[in-house]
Design a protein around this nucleic acid. Sequence first.
DNA 1: GCCCAATGCGCC
DNA 2: AAAGGGCGCATTGGGC
Length: 470
Amino acid sequence: MAQAQPGPWDALGAAVLTPIEGRSGPAHSTLFDFEQPLVSETTDPLDALNEFERQRVSLAGSVDPARLSRLLAAESVGALIAAEMRFAGLPWSVSAHDQILTEMLGPRPTVEGDRPSKLQFLAEKIRSLLDAPQLNPDSPNDLLRALTVAGVQTTSTRAWELKQLKHPAIEPLLEYKKMSRLLAANGWNWLDSWVRDGRFRPDYVPGGVVTGRWATSGGGALQLPHLIRGAVIPDAGWKLVVADASQLEPRILAAMSADRGMVEAGASGDLYEGIVASGAVETRAQAKLAMLGAMYGATTGESGRLMPKLARAYPRAIQMVEDAARAGERGEVVSTQLGRGSPRGADTGTYDDSLTPAQRSAERERGRSWGRFTRNFIVQGTAAEWALCWMASIRVRLDALAAGTWLTESPHLVFFLHDEVVIHSPAESAEAVAVLVADAAHEAGRLLFGGLPVTFPLTVAIVDRYDAAK
DNA sequence: GCCCAATGCGCC
DNA sequence: AAAGGGCGCATTGGGC
């Protein structure tokens, strides 16, 4: 499957929602009749049974059919959940959103394209402080020029670079950037485009990311700023159950490498404190930094310096990500826990004497960069698999909780964010949902790692506003 | 007018 | 508070 050339199914995209006309389904075979050979009477390249049969054949020939079929099942449930979440929608209060915007930016301008009052005030202040009356603070070019003329030394206008600088204009400028960003990304225009009948309906793209993570197209659901999460408010008599997996990716690394020490460090609840307790590093902040470095491939800075300590304390876990990085540099495919393969890179390890030293050096850096990708791929991709299994298990349990009701009449998933879910639930069911979500996290661990004693603790909150969940 | 790259920043 | 991985989106500013 992964090796197969893209076919007509891959090209479907949004068109999948359009019914195919003039075709009646097979009359005598049922979808789950596995014992019957699935010989389709049609040559339609979009025939679902044909595709299903191709997948079965491919599975049977795979290295580990049990794991890969689990991945297929998880992906299938994920696709269903994505459609259901879009159907149900995330409860969204237009008035709460407007209130947030008005507080931060000033009231919505009556003339389209005008700056809201507070933003306009800041723009004038920056112009005056930089002595640049024509300055458009939204134009990086313009801004860089004005800063240089005012004697501020910088090569870019990125917020984190500006923060290092000393000039009276910097503070209002940073404030302006934050506000301008809110207006452009999630302002009134966004509200008009994406919220209908009190619901935000993101267009999820399951498996849209190369690692297996979901993507979205339009609406930017996976980048929903914390600033506006106060607009996510349940219906009257309902609650939001917000659950996120604590330190998911480091725990995934511990589990997939079966690094006993790291698994035990996570057993008490805070993996980073566990790492400190083991004596590997001195502070929680160091533990976090070192783990991030291990998973992303940090080479410099404090993160890079802490890596050897981590490698001494947790040799198996670190060896696993190092191996993934080296494999990537050689152009090899690496794989997640359930068998999703990475794309094949170019082999940059072999010596090619037709290249100039500069070319060889560029080639090496390209290889290292690909190695950082494959290093992260196995962790990010397996975390995505855990999240799919988690959601699938949540859905099964929600189904059992409220059998025989419509999706939106009983507790249902309304939002997903890589390691976090939101469930819209009648108030009286919220406690039960909070319990079931934690049970599902245990089950996800079992589905991926069998009997390994790994824990995936959650932070669960029952709230009346999304941003009330910490 | 449309198309595209660069820039910057939101999320995990 | 970036560095190191993965994304999507709005805006600017250049090309045609």
